[in-house]
Amino acid sequence: MSDARPRPATRGPSEPGSTTSSPSVANVSRAVLEGPDIHRALTRIAHEILERTKGAQDVVLLGIPTRGVTLARRIGERVARFEGVQIPAGSIDITMYRDDLRLRPARPLGRTELPPDGIDGKIVVLVDDVLFSGRTVRAALDALGDIGRPRAVQLATLVDRGHRELPIRADYVGKNLPTAMSEKVKVFLAETDGRDAVVLIKEGDAK
């Protein structure tokens, strides 16, 4: 799912909503979700979590770096606003558990910040920006197993773009987005990227 993460090398595509191609590269990008859409999707996910877990008792939100952490924090704020329950939000880095480590040079690690009470007996909701092959989530499940024994693990994702390679599904989905394998989905969030948007990029040339 690494292709879901905007890298500094990738410039933000053209103005949201417009489908122009940048002059030099034959990529066509289109914003599929704008700021207000993302806000509404997260609001719905927060309500769904409250509903499914009957008031979010014992819920712990764990975001997968980088964007998932921001999303987990936003969902946590909404849950607190709607029902006044403070649910802990942390992060879990899955780099050391990836199955494709040997395909690229060693990469830097993300932050793991667990709530002080740990995750034993809790309902852990993993939060990621884009659900794609499912391999990141598999790695996250392995990482959780080494940290503690949650009562249940659920998965929330802003975008589900399909093309699963493992038997994994999300419990809470912001938007189901049918995509071609050759396309890329990039999530921009105000905290890290200065604006909120989900952008679908059609690659002109296969790199």
Binding site: D93, Y97, L101, P108, L109, T112, D146, I147
Partner: peptide, 23 residues
Amino acid sequence: LLILDTAEELAQVSQRSIKKLPT
């Protein structure tokens, strides 16, 4: 700095009950 930052994250592993990574 990469080594020191990586170590900063790995320091948490020594405090867990399962002090092992599959890497």
